[in-house]
Amino acid sequence: MPAFSSGKLTPQMMVLGLVIQQQDTASGVARRLDDQFASARFPKSSAYNNMRGLAGKGYLRLVEKGVEPSLDRYEATSEGIEVFRGWLRHTELPPVVCDALQCKLEFLEREDLVALIRIVREEERAYTAAFAAAQLEVKAEQRLRRARGKPVDFNTRLRGIQKQDEAKLWGLMAKRLQCLGDELEEFLDEISAAGAG
């Protein structure tokens, strides 16, 4: 029986998945982790620490010793693949929102309101820029799709769906931050007027 099968996203699961995709070293996995999951911003040390941990649990095995530990090459074991498939097919319920702004609102005092509005607006700009960057990729994919016509292979189609979903996530966050910023500004106006009155 696999040791864990939670649907929660951890760098350990991503590292395991990347080694299942292809044999790799900690150094190579670190690069792929950063490239393929840029927005998750996993810590730089995730690859090295987790590969050792995964090997210790028997989910990875050493196939080639490198000149230094970060260049040791690993592959996934059948048990590792089973654990990963368990994670992939596991539901993410109950729903979890781990949102810093939600937590900051819980502790907010009146004198913090202006600062919070400023950070909401900064985040809104950053998420809008991320949405714009993702939308560029979605539109590029649309041009390709229209040019080559249907049908397309599994991986190309899946990447297209993933790109669209990513753009939607950024867009929804940007729109949510915009609404939150507007509401907090209206709230500030109200309490300022009440204070002045």
Binding site: A38, S39, A40, R41, Y127, A129, A132, A133, W170, M173
Partner: peptide, 13 residues
């Protein structure tokens, strides 16, 4: 303007 990928992306936890 689109900031570089690393800077422009927010964080999805």
């Amino acid at each position: 303007p689109f900031p570089e990928r690393a800077e422009s992306r927010g964080h999805v936890a």
